[in-house]
Nucleic acid binder design. Sequence first.
RNA 1: GCCCGGAUGGUGAAAUCGGUAAACACUGCGGACUUAAAAUCCGCCGCCGCAAGGCUUACGGGUUCAAGUCCCGUUCCGGGCACCA
Length: 922
Amino acid sequence: MQDKQQYKPADIERAAQQHWDATHAFRVQADASKPKYYCLSMFPYPSGKLHMGHVRNYTIGDVLSRFHKMKGFNVLQPMGWDAFGLPAENAAIKNKVPPAKWTYDNIAYMKQQLKSLGFAIDWSRELATCTPEYYKWNQWLFLRMLEKGIAERKTQVVNWDPVDQTVLANEQVIDGRGWRTGALVEKREIPGYYLKITDYADELLSDLDELQGWPERVKLMQANWIGKSTGVRFAFKHDIADDGQLISDGKLWVFTTRADTIMGVTFCAVAAEHPLALHAARSNPELAAFIEKCKHGSVMEADMATMEKEGLPTGLFVTHPLTGKQVEVWVGNYVLMSYGDGAVMGVPAHDERDFAFAKKYALPIEQVVALGDKPYSLDAWQEWYGSKDGVCINSGKYDGLGYEAAVDAIAADLAAQGVGEKKVQWRLRDWGISRQRYWGCPIPIIHCDSCGSVPVPDDQLPVVLPEDCVPDGSGNPLNKRDDFLACACPSCGKPARRETDTMDTFVDSSWYYARYATKFGADKMVDDETNYWMTVDQYIGGIEHAILHLLYSRFWTKVMRDVGLVKYSEPFANLLTQGMVLAPTYFVDKEDGSKDWINPSSITEYTSPVTGQTYAWIKDGGLDFSETTLVEGRGNTSKVRISGTNGALNWFEETDKQGKKSLVIVSGNQVQISGMEKMSKSKNNGVDPEALIATYGADTCRFFIIFTAHPEQSLEWSDAGVEGAYRFLRRVWGFGHVLATEIRPQIGAERQLAGAKLPEALAGFRREIHLLLKQANYDLGKQQFNTVASATMKMLNALEKAPRDGALAAEVIEECFGILLRVLSPLTPHISHALWRELGYGDDILQAAWPEPLEAALAQDEIELMLQVNGKLRGAVRVAADAPKDAIEAAALAHEMAAKFMEGKPAKKVVVVPGRLVNIVC
RNA sequence: GCCCGGAUGGUGAAAUCGGUAAACACUGCGGACUUAAAAUCCGCCGCCGCAAGGCUUACGGGUUCAAGUCCCGUUCCGGGCACCA
């Protein structure tokens, strides 16, 4: 027994996991006799090792799964791998290993890590998106979309590295240069496939209202992203012609949501690729050079928005449709050809960006909206200039009209001339899915010299990706694989060439939830089982996926519905957006200008007592910061020396005569500190849970990560405090054995608890446990698991102090410890499993019913109310639990502290908040 | 730049509908046990003050009998911005 009293997580966890494996405890099937609960955590990218962000995500999912299982639901919790993607290619470049091998090795390793955490996963449904049996269906549905006109081919703008002759991801562009070559990146237009998500914009927006289980902020972000706005599309007429042919029928089209300010237009700006810009550039070398310059630089919105706005006049003029005035056309680097018509009207008086542009190039600014009698000044932009609450001025017949009336009147006048109309505009753009990359799902298209782009027939699917390529950074290796490229045209049979672009990996993750809920191998994308399990009852994942992944999945579901595959319109009924786990990032600059990211586990930090700043070094053996000593403090110079046993590090700080503090580094591998960021492969700041599990066990690891913060809150990772979780579980284990050896034996053959009048101390203890249970159940309902963990700790604190002598007390303790074990079991399933069995509560805690508080245990006679005088706490009054308001007021006024702080003034008012407090106002 | 969040003791955090700010832990300090150490157990721990008491939820205003919580403004931190996933 001595040995049994020792908490040994490794043994306990191995035994519990073996039990679950042997009994297929988490393998499930459709079962109409039970309510179903589909609990899905976002599947991981197999980057190599789990990090704490994964542990947090999957522990939250597991808590919900196990809780619902005990509540009687048929629970499905699957797991799989988001296995295509860029990091595998980067690893290939670095290690010369094929992405397939790297990926499958990582999956094997991470699966074993997940298993060691004891998650209640139905592994029979595991999938990896890089397998042909999965991605076949990406290809199949893509072909359906082509048939329905949802997929189409058009041009896309990409980052082009002119040295490597390859397309770069945004992540691979650093300060406008290629990550490996350092070459200036160019924008380049190439053909690619798009999915017309904009056709579903209205539905994607309006269905947000039905997603009551989604956080408001996510719905708000999606609504803003979709960005429905009503405005006016109208044209400026002109007679500019190329070779006698009017350019764009002599109309320069623009879109505006501020038609009320059209009278204030003083210029127009067009994109560098706009026909008018190209026309003007023919006879204007300076403009041609400017257009060339615009082709460099980023395609990212964040860069577009923050870059210096530049422009050049074309010398061309168009006619204002309402005033007939001539308006000059400029080329602006901030206007994108791919948005709308590639041109914008300039109203500098009422648009902040136009205001700055006009000031920079001395263009006229004409105020056409006034707000009250606020003075308009050209000196600086003011917030109200952009307001829609004003009325039109200097606008001829539109003077005095408010925003809506002005828009209506102006739109009507433009429509009458045939040069404008009201139009709904979306911010949402179509989804470009073509990637010029190897490690992804091949797009099932064949290019034939005579027939053009021909879809691969269904019976030739899947188009299988060869798994032995090793990318070297110089473009897609599929272009060098004749065995992949060569094929016959499905249409005419002549030799043809296979498409080498692969799909965006967001395609893979847009429908995996439906595949889990289906029988694999069936020659269908999804089968009828999907209609049983779907929709997902609880989806859990990082807030960083709030827009793209979730929006694409919603879109893909609606397409599957429209193709007749599924009956539901939305994939995820309830969404828990888990806060990210952040860790510090560190890098050293490499000679080629790129950054080498160093994992926090190999970093030592030191905060200088002199400058207050924190510095970081790569750990190299024997560094010991406890040896920090102030060696000199003479005059205004202080020196701090930190010694390391390997002598590699040596620096000192000094304060000079002006009081300026500085750090002088003599030697050592110093690294740059670069802020807290979400744990990721690319910044190499993931913290592997393995060491924690090895030292303390999975239960401690799970308990700690749940305990340490609210699930939705972002978390700066630190394992300080994990000892506390471990101590707690050790005490739970120890108490279980005290219960078995010392407390239980006092229970008689006849049970006495039911209906018994308990002594006050025992009743108080029992009430405390049941109150904590009530709180825990409430918190589980709102998915606040950290306070559930606190509640279990409070329960144990109470149990250890509870009266334990006599049969009645022993029965109460047995009941309360049983409650504790069950509340704990979703958090720490292994220890709960072991104690539940060993203490004879039952065979399997998974089959136990979730506990509910007993009303009889909660009842109490007297309660304590806080006493306030003028809103400040002055004491407490005890009253009967059912005391009426006037009795409470009387008790409050009779309190000595009330008299003291009322200072003889009469009470003007007494506020009684039932069950809480009483406040005397005087 | 735009959109969405967050900020509470030395630290992680809690406070359910506007009603006792700091529960539960970590660290630290003091003590018990021990030949000693580890483990364990007990006590203390927001700031000022001898005390009575006063002050305190990033900063500045406001609403209210009462504000961490609601409103307005600001700062800093994190996420997203369409090819990281």
